[in-house]
Design a protein around this nucleic acid. Sequence first.
DNA 1: TCTGGGGTCCTAGGACCC
DNA 2: TCTGGGGTCCTAGGACCC
Length: 408
Amino acid sequence: MIITDWPNAVAHIDADYFFANCELARKPELRGKPVMVLGKLGSCILAKTPEAKQAGITTAMPLWDAKKACPKGIYIHGDFRYYTILSRYLMSLLGEWSPVLEIYSVDEAFMDLKGLRGLYRMPYNRIADRIREEIKNRIGITVSVGVSVNKTLAKVACELNKPDGTTMVPGRAISDFLSTIPVGDIPGIGRSRSELLFKYGIKSAQQLAETSQNLIQRWFGKTGVLLWRELRGETSFPIQKDSPPPKSIARTSSFDKPHTNLQVVHGMATYHLERAIEALYRHHLLVKEFALYLREKSFMTYGLKHRFESPTNDFYELVKALSKTIKNMPSNRIWRSTGVILSHLSPSCGQQLNLFEDPKKIECQDELNQAKLDLNKRFGRTTVRSGATLFISKKYTINKERLDLPLF
DNA sequence: TCTGGGGTCCTAGGACCC
DNA sequence: TCTGGGGTCCTAGGACCC
């Protein structure tokens, strides 16, 4: 266990009920009301204000249950482009406070505070408060901040005074702090690990921190030991400034209701493939393995795979792979969702050509793909698109705006 | 809590080789 | 024909996160 207060200083900044908070930022008249943001097809709750939480609403609750629990609630279809813009604004403001910032998710970041006391001439807790105030004033949303000696402890601390609060856990306070935290509240300890720990009578985070390393290794392997070290005040997970390129790209969604029409499955999967290719280009990546993702009404899930001979980002090659894969689908099933997953990704610069590929042809394909993406960026995602998506007719989609498709 | 749409990492075990 | 011991690579699936 460490004995000094600030061998390192890490802040975890977490936007409170982010999507719902974004809605309050542009519709202040909704403040104080139970506001909920819904997923793509309005099927479940993605975010809720404290007032909705009080009414018994939980995240991922299906819409019909939510309406029973909170009939007078305000239900809003998620506007994810808007949330992304606010997220970028939030991160850029945080970046002004410290150059060492890790963007952890759309609504969370870690910041290295070490050395900033001298720079700003104020203690860490004051810096945290100032950050919260600035975000509230300039973006109109509230965030909570936890400050401790590493990422895990800062993250756990952040949860304690939500919303709109600062929580400090200096080195000497770690033990007392952890004795008040249930093991299940530690990031990295989910349901199954909690259950195992409970069997051994380990209920608080402090008890876990005092368990022998050998036991931790046996129960949870390498990652468990890294986490255990963080609970003891050491640093296993340094702040990572630059986010690495993705290892897989998935684009999926549920249908408005389960159905059996293969052309619609094909159309939806093609639509998602086009979205996935956009991401592939954005990250300058090539894909070696394509999977058609399918989920039955019963939640039975399939990933039908196709391997490319050499990594590609070519639209037509991917569309062909999808068409081929569709033919291997189990028949006579009722489908609930579909999409695509691109994996085994590699950087597109310095692409290795195999002996049979014509560099000129690849160059032409690339220009064509790029032109398609540029047109769609300027005039809307579906300006140039695969004919297969024509099969997603109005009959199968309830909300045109959500899909962003010109439906007929 | 009968269930969105994304992701990551680790591990066990099979295939294959010398 | 039967049998070692050691190594690597790959994949499926579990557990976890927001």
